[in-house]
């Protein structure tokens, strides 16, 4: 899962001046024709760099995203939920695997990416720095955070880089299960006993504003990404994805009799746009910079997993018949 709000490096036009202009023109013409770029094609350094950054952040978000829901994996109520949640979290790990492979085709190894993640040199989706206090939080994530990720992933699957698009196509198929599973879980709580209902309402109250932040800061204050849009690295703007999500899911939340904690929320029928109370963007900045409620725990867990697995990886590495690493074909 992942949302918009990717953190792109500042794009420097100088980097483009150094490129072979003829090759650059052919590259852009290919994208304009709607063709995909494949790993062995010529590509500008900036394209490679920004794609690695984006796919890597996406991959990290998948494995870190497995943690808040993982909180409830041993406590899922009943067989249907137990099996469903195990399969759902497993898929997220699988998504990370697919996405790391896609990023690897651009020349950065998975191990380097993981090393950058656990040592705080890389980012992942901010929303996973919030805790899942109750079973209902986990249900919120499965349904609505994944719904946000889907809006973004469906858009990105129409991007220009072949391996990333192929990974996203696989991912989107699995996401349809996540979405239904999550909606099923939320429905049972919202239409259940008064206590279950209250539990779901409280989770919604906690997650509403982090969810709005999930798509990234408003377009007017976020970094300029025109060139990334032209190259079909970024497809939809933060505001576009946020509006799409509101359009699709606010009615479904209301349908369950739940109250969204914002009395200003409404759809402006003239503009067709949703109006809402802005989340606290200062908090967003704080969380991105490592000061959210769970940032430290998330990295501490990944480090622990890395460390616990080290002897295993070293041991099977000895068994590898060919120890020379080759970039995968993804």
């Amino acid at each position: 899962m992942y949302g918009g709000g990717y953190l792109f490096e500042k794009t420097s036009p100088d980097l483009l001046k150094e490129e072979d202009q003829e090759k650059l023109a052919a590259f852009e013409a290919r994208i304009d024709r709607g063709e995909k770029i494949e790993p062995h094609d010529w590509m500008p350094k900036l394209y490679r760099q920004q794609l690695i950054r984006m796919i890597e952040q996406h991959a990290h978000s998948e494995i870190i995203g497995a943690l808040p829901e993982g909180t409830w994996i041993t406590r899922a109520p009943g067989f249907k939920r137990k099996l469903g949640l195990m399969a759902k979290v497993q898929d997220e790990v699988g998504h990370a695997q697919l996405l790391y492979s896609a990023a690897e085709t651009l020349g950065k190894s998975r191990e380097q990416m993981i090393d950058d993640l656990i040592n705080g040199r890389s980012k992942y989706s901010n929303i996973f720095n919030y805790p899942a206090y109750t079973w209902a939080d986990s249900c919120f994530i499965s349904w609505l955070v994944d719904a946000g990720a889907i809006v973004n992933q469906v858009a990105n699957s129409k991007g220009s880089y072949g391996p990333y698009c192929r990974a996203l196509e696989r991912i989107c198929i699995e996401e349809s299960f996540h979405l239904k599973f999550g909606h099923h879980c939320v429905t049972y709580l919202a239409t259940g006993t008064p206590r279950q209902r209250q539990m779901m309402q409280e989770a919604l109250n906690r997650w509403w504003y982090p969810m709005l932040m999930f798509f990234g800061p408003p377009d007017k204050i976020s970094a300029h990404t025109e060139i990334l849009m032209r190259w079909k690295v970024k497809i939809l703007s933060n505001d576009e994805t946020r509006q799409q999500w509101l359009d699709m899911y606010v009615p479904k939340i209301w349908e369950l009799g739940l109250t969204i904690p914002d009395d200003k929320l409404r759809k402006n029928e003239e503009t067709g746009k949703w109006e809402f109370t802005q989340p606290d963007w200062e908090e967003f900045k704080q969380v991105i910079n490592g000061n959210g409620p769970c940032n430290k725990e998330r990295l501490a867990v990944r480090r622990m997993a890395e460390k616990r697995g080290e002897w295993v990886r070293r041991a099977i590495l000895v068994k590898a018949s060919n120890k020379k690493y080759v970039t995968p074909l993804a």
């Binding site: 494995i63 497995a66 943690l67 993982g70 994996i73 041993t74 067989f79 137990k82 099996l83 195990m86 399969a87 979290v89 497993q90 997220e92 790990v93 699988g94 990370a96 695997q97 790391y100 867990v301 622990m304 997993a305 616990r308 697995g309 080290e310 295993v312 990886r313």
Partner: peptide, 24 residues
């Protein structure tokens, strides 16, 4: 299932998670 998301290698994490699901 306690290993899900915490395995020694992503690929093994996935295989282990499937075994957990099968047994349940």
């Amino acid at each position: 299932s306690e290993w899900i998301g915490l395995g020694p290698l992503l690929e093994e994490d996935i295989a282990f998670a499937s075994k957990a699901q099968d047994k349940v």
